[in-house]
Nucleic acid binder design. Sequence first.
DNA 1: CGTGTTTGACCTGCGC
DNA 2: GCGCAGGTCAAACACG
Length: 229
Amino acid sequence: MNDKCNNLQSHIQEIIRTEQQMKYNNYLASSYESIHKGGRPTLAEAPISQTSKIYVKTHLDDKTLVVRDGYQWRKYGQKVTKDNPSPRAYFKCSMAPRCPVKKKVQRSLEDRRYLVATYDGEHNHDVDCSIGRSFASAKSSSMAGFPSPETSDTSRFQSNIALNLTLSGSSQEKKRPSSHNSREDYDHHKKKMKIEEYVSSLANDPNFTTALAAAVASSITDLPKPTIL
DNA sequence: CGTGTTTGACCTGCGC
DNA sequence: GCGCAGGTCAAACACG
């Protein structure tokens, strides 16, 4: 057990170094953005619990601008903005008829592998699917069920991980009722393939393994969670 | 047929 | 007042 703890501790040191590297990368991205947004309130100035921003890693050739966060969104517009050649997509929360939450999704100018999702407002309802709940619980200890305001790079980092965990519970999969026989088998197979794909991508995702290791470590020991300065 | 997406038009706020 | 850019609307369209 002690050996395992020692291994974990040394692994956590690596994790912290990795996070610091990520923090630096994210800092570059946000600095670039604030410079180019001119006049836009800085994130620290933005009202807490009203606006938050998360970064989601995607494939470069993925043009869907879809950020799967456990909620159901309806796209209502798309624009190409002046400071970023990638189109910005506008979404409204469609899980509740009167939910005021909106989000904007645009590929990061600094690092085009990342989508930047900006959330506006607060949900007046819960996530009603199991995946959504797992999304919320994945963030449970330090975050609410909704992406927290971007007050630190840690939150952005954690949001990124949480989002990757929700991939199989997208709106695209939620509504088809189960049918029978070959159709059911086909759907099941398809779902299985998808899950395997996600699991494989998670396994290869250093962010995920990092967070997993930290969670395991903190549950075994009383080590504080890694923090970013 | 219901639901979600696309996309051009329109609205609004801001700087000059 | 004008022009620009971001945000929103809504008709047309696609899809299951």
